[in-house]
């Protein structure tokens, strides 16, 4: 009396699958094509990064990474991520609170606005800051008069990074918080918890995996952004180069091993991102299905 009375299709060689799946040769054929496609476009490039990086041995690899310009690039990348991720995290939580827990006119317009940086070419994402803060830009004269540099300097890189990573946390949290409704917060309020307390004790535990998911994707993009940063950076070696820009310079100088060595750091970051993302996704799914 404890087991399925409903649809059950779990025995291995169930002939019933004849009704629900394709003949074995068709299955094999489709699987082979799909896997070949995925291998060609995903696995081979991923493996190639590491193989190329280690082609000249670990010593050359380590030397490329420990080189001062590379080091400066890592530093700048970390700074850009350290500024943009918290900014967009706070924004993401605030925006999803307002959007998911309240009703107001123009909500779907606001959601579309938040999504915009995803659908804008990275080159344009960089361009807009050049238009604002570049020499010919709106604030260009004023900035140069006060000798403040934004474009072709660190602030520009940070601004461009904030822009391209803008939606990540919000777009992950909005659907999650919408699916959770506001019953729990209302219950906390009735039980006498204040707004902040109810947020910390009730809301936050419910969205923590969603937050992690958003943050990890936001961070990956912040550290890996190329196009937007490339436009505003000015490519000043050791000063305004992030890791991806440094990779480009090395590559264009035909210093392939060094380029791939530095690139392998980013590839490792991507792998960690994918692993954490899978975990967070799994947790979020569990949480949603448990409700």
């Amino acid at each position: 009396m404890h087991l399925p009375g409903g649809p059950t299709r779990n025995t291995k060689k169930n002939p019933a699958e004849l009704n629900l799946t394709e003949p074995a040769p068709v299955r094999w054929f489709l699987t082979a094509i799909a896997l070949a496609f995925l291998a060609l476009f995903l696995f081979v490039p991923l493996a190639a990064v590491f193989v190329q990086a280690l082609e000249k041995g670990t010593e050359a690899y380590l030397a490329a990474i420990a080189e001062p310009d590379a080091f400066a690039a890592v530093r700048l990348t970390l700074i850009a991520a350290a500024v943009s991720v918290p900014l967009n995290l706070v924004f993401g939580v605030a925006a999803s609170w307002a959007i998911a827990k309240f009703d107001f006119p123009g909500k779907s317009l606001l959601i579309t606005l938040i999504d915009i940086p995803f659908s804008v070419s990275p080159v344009i994402s960089g361009l807009i800051f050049v238009l604002l803060f570049g020499l010919q830009g709106w604030f260009g004269e004023w900035l140069s008069a006060n000798s403040i540099k934004i474009v072709f300097a660190v602030p520009g890189i940070i601004l461009a990074t904030v822009f391209v990573t803008f939606p990540f946390v919000a777009r992950e949290l909005i659907p999650l918080m919408q699916s959770q409704g506001r019953d729990e917060e209302e219950a906390a309020l009735v039980l006498g918890a204040g707004g902040l307390k109810s947020f910390l004790r009730v809301t936050l535990p419910n969205i923590k995996w969603g937050v992690l998911y958003g943050v990890i994707l936001c961070n990956a993009r912040a550290m890996g952004e190329f196009g937007a940063v490339s436009v505003v950076s000015g490519h000043i070696r050791g000063a305004t180069n992030t890791i991806p820009l440094h990779v480009e310079i090395l590559y264009n100088e035909y210093n392939f091993t060094a380029a791939f060595a530095v690139a392998s750091l980013l590839a490792l970051l991507a792998l960690v991102t994918l692993a954490v993302k899978s975990l967070a996704e799994w947790k979020v799914r569990q949480q949603i299905s448990a409700e």
């Binding site: 991923l46 550290m223 890996g224 190329f226 196009g227 991806p244 480009e248 994918l274 993302k277 899978s278």
Partner: peptide, 29 residues
């Protein structure tokens, strides 16, 4: 299929891998 979860996670690689890395890798391949 064996290793399905890994393949599934790997599908997002183009989202996670910085475009410059993808670019130099594809060009080299």
């Amino acid at each position: 299929l064996p290793g399905k979860r890994i393949v599934d996670a790997l599908v997002d690689l183009p989202f996670a891998l910085p475009t410059a890395v993808a670019g130099i890798t594809l060009a080299t391949l």
